[in-house]
Design a binder for these strands. Structure first.
Length: 780
RNA sequence: GCGCGAUUAGCUCAGUCGGUUAGAGCGUACGGUUCACAUCCGUAAGGCCGCAGGUUCGAUUCCUGCAUCGCGCACCA
């Protein structure tokens, strides 16, 4: 045996073969024994983990490699002979993917507006399909023990059916509404966002004081004066008390504006008087609503000026600001300019400034969903680790706001709502005509020129008024029987579907209705919520992810899963650390400090990569990684390999033929014998406890230290003497202890470094299972 | 503005009920081995555990304040 072992461990040669062996033998696919209750006596409760689905269009980055935490848990539980399901999948990642794709379009000198939505959707789909397999191969390379027979994708019909059914249920429960408020719109990404996708940054700007006739106001956005519908002061403000109800005049246009009073106005700030621009500011919108002011829109979804004096028409808001300022100055209406540092909202994706726009969006009334989700964590039905994230979660949940789930992009499941054009003639459509022109306008204005079929075929988007009547089925209009109906063009926020991942995946095993099509179809009314997988594996055991998506994903999952299934989605939410570079900086392409996990696997082996990741990473913090970390762990793999090489050759030379039994009774003879067995027992105890407590880094460090310094440096050195100097009984006994400690060490190490440990285990004469992956976890 | 973290060796980080001599990886210096180990082993240097108070027999650990950095939340035009 030892003659076959090279002096150095070569991961490349063994890793792929071993993975194929595991997968081929079905170790990743748990057995559900029919007739036995999952919690029954004969079978332990299954251990279930869902892999947070990576973006389907993207290769893995170092962050994904940290899912090794889940693999460690799964492998450990599998060795404790529990049925284990570790379920893989990928996410269509709506805005992220479309953003990447649009960049490619731009490189070709094109934009999304050159295509009708069906064509664009197909193009993105093709792009994603080309890349979708990459992540799968990579996850196998990392050694993740995933059940590939249950692989899922957020856009597969069996998943979408359930997602749409949830939407229908929400609607039936009165929890879906279309708003008429201000939404966070990114004119660069071309879509509205929920408040979570808005980041706030401090920005140095100017506060401009403008002469409004009877009163002077202060604003940072002079270009929006044309959208003013009033001027507001605080009712308690003595300076302006006598002006309330009087008239102010908008500079440049001289439009009359009523001076109103509202508590929201801060007397201390600026001039203590505020111009009210309901269509382009959320606070103004609220004030406007109270005072029944009709919003005037002057910025469109491209960020360009509309409904303004001709000279500003079509300018971007930023350009318009300079132009308007110049004219205000010339007219003597700009009385003062002060520097101002304030916070502005920017798009988390493209970092451009968010434009608050008044436009209808689909919202979920979230309070009824948040309440049980809050309780679940408060009552510790769900534990969030580390604990401090629990505080964050509770804080956010207690102040949660309704969730905008509609996005004006094509890449994603289209919201299953249909409008009758005859009943909603005010619907605005934009489409590409058969001649290839881009047409935009109210349906009632353009229907004479273009017939319905042409509009439907070239449709890019539609904007329905807030109160538009819609149906949840693609059927002729219930009212007027018209067949001129169009589906909503908004798509779901990606998190709306990934927020349902724990049950959509487990329900998907029922298959899907063959008539079901992805983009437009009826919802199935009576979905089967009783699949074997769902009954057996739900709720799942542990969810592990990075803390940056605690609200985006974890919180939404808890809410949606409890709402739909009545049960919590997982018992533990574990937040793993963030991978940063050697200097503590976030890894990003633009910084050029990205370490590709697959390159590291090729260079140092998957085991070294995995061990390096968990070795120095406390949960919820940052782990700084440089190549030296992987190098250090490759040295460790080599150490393991050579220790095994020594033990096996020593055993062989000292009566291997006698060592075939696994039941050899260990009889420690020397002090060293006693010590190593005692320390092994202690290590087993500690590591088991660490794993129970999610102290992965502690466990990793302990097994590292035990193997290298206690076993190799001390015991093996001692064993050499015992073999050289002892009698035949001691020789044999020493070899037995060496083999035993090696075997148990391989077990302890296996969750962390699965490949090399399995490889060595297969060579052992004292195996106690056909493969290490299913060998019994050491007990004390 | 409110809240949450962090501050420990030259660097990057651990340190789970308060308890003897505060640890690891990498780096540095010296010695050894080359018949398990593209290496490995041994030894060493290096720490006011951010600062100031408090509780305690005893504080890196618990409490208060401060400083610096990071993050989350927040409609100040």
């Amino acid at each position: 045996m030892s003659q076959e072992m090279d002096k150095i461990y070569n991961p490349k040669e063994s890793e792929e073969k071993i993975y194929q062996m595991w997968e081929g033998k079905g170790y990743f696919t748990p057995k559900i024994e029919k007739g036995k209750k999952p919690f029954g006596k004969d079978q332990g409760k299954p251990f279930t983990v869902l892999l947070p689905p990576p973006n389907a269009n993207d290769p893995l980055h170092m962050g994904h490699a940290l899912f090794v935490v889940e693999d460690i848990l799964c492998r450990w539980h599998r060795m404790k002979s529990e049925p284990v399901l570790f379920l893989p999948g990928t996410d269509h990642a709506g805005i992220e993917t479309q953003y990447v794709f649009e960049k490619r379009l731009k490189e070709q000198g094109k934009s999304r507006f050159d295509f009708d939505r069906d064509t664009l959707y197909r193009m993105i789909n093709d792009f994603v399909e080309q890349n979708r397999g990459v992540a799968k191969i990579q996850m196998k390379k990392l050694g993740f023990g995933l059940d590939w027979t249950r692989e899922r994708y957020t856009l597969e019909p069996a998943i979408l059916e359930t997602v749409f059914a949830t939407f229908r249920k929400l609607h039936e429960d009165g929890l879906i509404y279309r708003n008429d408020g201000i939404v966070n719109y990114c004119t660069y990404c071309g879509t509205a966002f929920s408040e979570l996708e808005v980041e706030h940054i401090e920005k140095d700007d100017f506060l401009y004081f403008l002469d409004y006739g009877a009163i002077s106001i202060a604003t940072t956005r002079p270009e929006t004066i044309f959208a003013d519908t009033a001027v507001a002061v605080n009712p308690k403000d003595k300076r302006y008390k006598n002006l309330i109800g009087k008239t102010a005049f908008m500079p440049i246009t001289n439009k009359e504006l009523l001076i109103i009073a509202d508590d929201l106005v801060d007397m201390e700030f600026g001039a203590g008087a505020l111009k009210i621009t309901p269509a382009h500011d959320s606070a103004d919108f609220e004030i406007g609503k109270k005072h029944e002011l009709e919003p005037v829109k002057i910025i469109d979804t491209n960020g360009k000026m509309i409904n303004v004096p001709e000279k500003y028409l079509g300018l971007y808001a930023k350009q318009a600001r300079q132009a308007v300022l110049g004219d205000l100055k010339a007219a003597g209406k700009l009385t003062k300019t002060e520097p101002l540092r304030h916070s502005v909202g920017i798009c988390y994706r493209c970092k451009n400034i968010i434009e608050p726009l008044a436009m209808p969006q689909w919202f979920i009334k979230i309070a009824p969903l948040a309440k049980p989700a809050l309780e679940a964590v408060k009552k510790e039905k769900i534990k969030i680790i580390p604990k401090r994230f629990e505080k964050l979660y509770l804080q956010w949940m207690e102040n949660i706001r309704d969730w905008n789930i509609s996005r004006q992009i094509v890449w994603g499941p289209r919201i299953p709502a249909w409008y009758c054009l005859s009943c909603n003639p005010d619907i605005v459509v934009s489409f590409v005509s058969e001649k290839g022109e881009k047409v935009f306008g109210k349906y009632q204005d353009i229907k004479k020129q273009y017939d319905f079929a042409e509009i439907k075929k070239g449709l890019q988007s539609l904007t329905a008024p807030k109160d538009a009547v819609f149906f949840l089925d693609e059927t002729p209009c219930e009212k007027c029987k018209s067949t001129d109906i169009l589906q909503e063009t908004d798509t779901f926020d990606t998190w709306f579907s990934s927020g349902q991942w724990p049950f959509t995946t487990l329900l998907a095993s029922r298959g899907s209705n063959s008539k079901f099509k992805m983009q437009s179809s009826k919802l199935r009314n009576n979905l089967d919520y009783t699949t074997e997988d769902f009954e057996y594996f739900y709720p799942t055991s542990v969810l592990d992810t990075m803390w940056d998506i605690l609200f985006f994903w974890v919180a939404r999952m808890i809410m949606l899963c409890i709402y739909v299934t009545g049960k919590i989605p997982f018992e533990v939410a574990h937040m793993h650390c963030r991978v940063v570079d050697k200097k503590g900086q976030k890894m990003s392409k633009s910084r050029g400090n990205v370490i590709n996990p697959i390159e590291m696997v090729d260079k140092y082996g998957a085991d070294a990569l995995r061990m390096a990741l968990v070795f120095s990473s406390a949960p919820g913090s940052d782990v700084c990684l440089g190549e030296e970390n992987f190098l250090a762990m490759r040295k460790f793999t080599n150490k393991i390999w050579n220790a095994a090489r020594f033990v096996l050759s020593a055993a062989e030379q000292n009566g291997n033929h006698k060592l075939q039994t696994i039941n050899y009774k260990l009889a420690p003879q020397t002090e060293a014998d006693k010590q190593i067995l005692k320390t092994l027992d202690e290590t087993v105890k500690e590591i088991t406890k660490d794993l129970e407590n999610f102290y992965f880094h502690e466990a990793a460090q302990k097994i590292y230290h035990f193997f290298w310094h206690t076993f190799c440096d001390i015991y093996i050195e001692q064993a050499k003497k015992q073999i050289a100097e002892g009698d035949s009984r001691q020789k044999e006994n020493t070899c037995q202890i060496l083999l035993y400690v090696l075997r148990e060490s391989m077990k302890l190490l296996h969750p962390f470094m699965p490949f090399i440990t399995e490889q060595i285990y297969q060579m052992l004469p004292n195996k106690d299972a056909e493969a290490l992956i299913i060998a019994p976890w050491p007990r004390v």
